[in-house]
Design a protein around this nucleic acid. Structure first.
Length: 510
DNA sequence: GGTACGACTTAGAAGTCATGGA
DNA sequence: TCCATGACTTCTAAGTCGTACC
């Protein structure tokens, strides 16, 4: 009988799909009458079997895929544990970039003359190991040896090699959470704070120097003004043909600057347009003091587009001068100082203790953004920006509808309560009230998110947060305004700034 | 003073992962 | 549960700046 049934089934190929289809179309009866042996009971059994099969398939999938992922994860963890740490001064420290750079095509940023060159594979024979004499270091793979094993405790790197594109040295160093990097970071901000104490004096001096008899001093003073006011980088010379053509302050050329005695109702406007670090465009129109303007006109006299604007100046001269003004002062300290002081001022200006947490965070991001704009930290707008913005707007619209519906319900509940005057309807009013409150909070959050995202379209906040803003300012702000530090710094950032989180109280002033 | 080099910080993009809503 | 999305992590290029050497 069962054979017959099977054969019949085979013959007719009345599969589950068909059963299902028939059922959906209301043809169940039809089906039933056509296959007498295909009773409801049998069908249920089949259905059971089908589900079982599905479950089995799923299990197989899980058996294959989940362990695969787990295996990779475990393997990564093993590699991290074996190679990702070192011991320095008796402390186990995370290493930053412990994986060797694989071979491939060199891209470079901007219009790089070496774009597309082959980046060679690094071999054990290229590698220099730096460790203490008595330490255990990784052995070179069988049949190979390291280029050198040295014991230099004056430097912080663990491994180095020379790369084949520019012939420069690359290093493996410790993670930002390490003691050695943390102390250095702290020092950097302390130097910037020392600058704060004397910056007005330095400004007074460079203004004075704008009138110097000596060209080199005038150039130095105007360059320093740019570095201070516009947070430009120092601008070292670069070897032509080896790298993309980018400039900083001292290496600005005539072609990068235009002078407008008047523009858009402002006097003495300087228009700067040049490729900076990573070939990111710096474009700014800024009104300067008359004396600066006159000096710039002087520097431009009788020069061609390709000539240096500051022909009597380079970073070495500038930094020597700065060193005389303050121990440890260099051009980049101005960037750190101006970034951090801007954050502190903006936070003071934008936040109030009455704000709720999302509003406070929006203000923090805005303060952060002001710094990113100052430092010209840009990013390509995310590929999915338009779409995700649109999605967010849809969400906001929906939330608005929800809110007005909830308000209506509240009104109705209130009316009921007024007529009925019983406990139950009173309770209902409370519930509806809470719903309205909850939804309007959600709406506000979404709107804040939309504003934040729109304003952030082309601006990268990460770089300034990680490299320019004294973390103690943020920590103090969080403590003062009761914002959890996790809202500002993620796990990695908290590890990097552990020194600041530990030592800072709410009264810290940069 | 000029230059090459070495060590270290700063930079945006790409890759990966976690989460939350459909 | 699945997938889209954004957050986080990794990657490595590209700067700064001090020093050695001529």
């Amino acid at each position: 009988d069962s054979h017959k049934h099977k054969d019949k089934h085979k013959e007719r190929e009345h599969s589950h799909k068909e059963h299902k289809r028939d059922k959906e179309r209301g043809n169940w009866k039809n089906c039933h009458s056509e296959h007498k042996s295909c009773s409801e009971k049998k069908h249920r059994e089949k259905e059971k079997e089908r589900l079982k099969h599905k479950e089995k398939q799923k299990e197989e999938k899980v058996d294959l895929i989940v362990p695969y992922h787990r295996k990779i994860k475990e393997e990564n963890e093993r590699i991290l544990q074996e190679y990702g740490y070192c011991v320095m001064d008796n402390h186990r420290e995370r290493i930053g970039n412990f994986r060797i750079e694989p071979p491939g095509l060199f891209r470079g940023r901007g219009d790089h003359p070496k774009m597309g060159k082959l980046k060679r594979r690094i071999r054990p024979e290229d590698i220099i190991i730096n460790c203490s004499k008595d330490s255990v270091h990784p052995k070179a793979p069988p049949g190979t040896r390291w280029k050198e094993v040295r014991h230099d405790n004056k430097v912080t790197w663990l491994v180095s090699w020379t790369e084949n594109i520019q012939g420069s040295i690359k290093y493996i160093m410790l993670n930002p959470s390490s003691r050695i990097k943390g102390e250095k970071d702290w020092q950097k901000y302390e130097t910037a704070r020392r600058l704060k104490k004397i910056v007005e004096r330095i400004r007074a001096q460079y203004r004075e120097d704008w009138r110097s008899k000596e060209m080199r001093i005038r150039q130095r003073a105007v360059a320093l003004y740019f570095i201070d006011k516009l947070a430009l980088r120092a601008g070292n010379e670069k070897d032509e043909g080896e790298t993309a053509d980018t400039v900083g302050c001292c290496s600005l050329r005539v072609e990068h600057i235009r002078l407008h005695p008047q523009l858009d109702g402002q006097d003495y406007v300087v228009e700067l347009d040049f490729p900076g670090k990573d070939s990111i465009r710096y474009y700014n129109k800024v009104s300067v003091e008359k004396r600066v303007f006159k000096n710039l006109q002087l520097f431009l006299e009788n020069k061609q587009a390709k000539d240096d604007l500051f022909d009597r100046l380079n970073t070495s001269i500038l930094n020597k001068h700065l060193q005389e003004l303050m121990d440890g002062l260099t051009a980049k300290v101005f960037r750190t100082y101006n970034a951090s002081i801007t954050l502190q001022q903006q936070l003071k200006e934008l936040t109030s203790s009455d704000d709720n947490i999302p509003e406070k965070i929006l203000s923090y991001n805005r303060a952060n953004r002001a710094v990113a704009v100052l430092c010209n930290h840009q990013r390509a707008p995310p590929k999915t920006f338009e779409k995700s913005m649109h999605n967010l707007q849809t969400k906001i619209d929906e939330k608005k509808k929800q809110l007005s519906a909830a308000k209506k319900e509240l009104k109705a509940a209130k009316a009921d309560a007024k007529t009925l005057r019983d406990e139950k309807s009173k309770k209902a009013v409370e519930t509806k009230k809470k719903a309205v409150q909850r939804i309007s909070e959600q709406l506000m959050k979404l709107e804040v998110q939309a504003t934040d995202r729109e304003e952030n379209k082309q601006i990268a906040l990460g770089t300034s947060k990680l490299n320019y803003l004294d973390p103690r300012i943020s920590v103090a702000w969080c403590k003062k305004l009761g914002v959890p530090i996790e809202k500002i710094y993620n796990k990695t950032q908290r590890e990097k700034f552990a020194w600041a989180i530990d030592m800072t109280d709410e009264d810290f002033e940069f």
